[in-house]
Design a protein around this nucleic acid. Sequence first.
DNA 1: ATATCTGCCTGCTCGC
DNA 2: TGCGAGCAGGCAGATA
Length: 272
Amino acid sequence: MPELPEVETIVRMLRTQLVGQRVVSWPRCVATSVAAEFERELAGREILDVRRRGKFVVIPLSGDKFCLVHLRMTGRLIIQDSTLTEACISDPHVHALFHFASGRILCFRDTRKFGRLYLVDDPAEVVGDLGPEPLAEDFTSQHLYELLRSHRKRLKPLLADQRLLAGLGNIYIDEALWEAKIHPLRLGHTLSMEETERLHAAIRGVLSRAIENLGTTLRDYRTPLGVAGGNQETLVVYGRQGQPCPRCGTPIRREVIGGRGTWYCPSCQAGD
DNA sequence: ATATCTGCCTGCTCGC
DNA sequence: TGCGAGCAGGCAGATA
């Protein structure tokens, strides 16, 4: 499932491949009037940049429009040679296809159809409510401290709330909490400054490392050129119930918190 | 304000 | 072997 590092990896590759390209057509999308509108609106526009905001891909287009993509669980953006256009169109999971004058295509493929495409005048219509970027230079531990104190929520659902902090998902929350040695059920406002500094460093460290490794591939995620990420090798707790904590040897525990599978070390991360 | 539940989806795993 | 049940989870929306 693409979280911040996966989207960042995708955005970097798309940027090198697509900036300056012109959308020729949009031959296929879901059969709604909205899709027809998409096709009409996109044709002829040039891709000016490819950026990321939280887990969104943000594509500024010529003519003051923005295309935004959220991959949710299984969404993928794939760059291919147009010789494969027919194969893409006959793929039942391909829901949209950008054609470019260069002869390449960009496929939006999503087996579970949770992903979303947007075409808007202002990105704020879609991402206006997102919290700060955890990797931004000006996102300090003091900011995180204030953010944690502003809500009486448990850390797991708090860190997953995109309105409070943008980009974290199930995997990196669990990994960051393990690294910071903090229990996922702790109430955010009970963290000391020292604990907050540990969490701040852990979040940024976990995300930065994942970007260096081109993202975490557990099943579906691939870069736009079809390559799996390598960060799954570095995961310590996510999906590893019963396996020994590499820090203390205690078996990793799985618990459902806020409706999500949550993995943590009951010894290192004691005290909820 | 926060927690909990449902729906959206499909592929995969598990148990019979 | 085959099949149905249950599960996974980001997010929106409803409800407690």
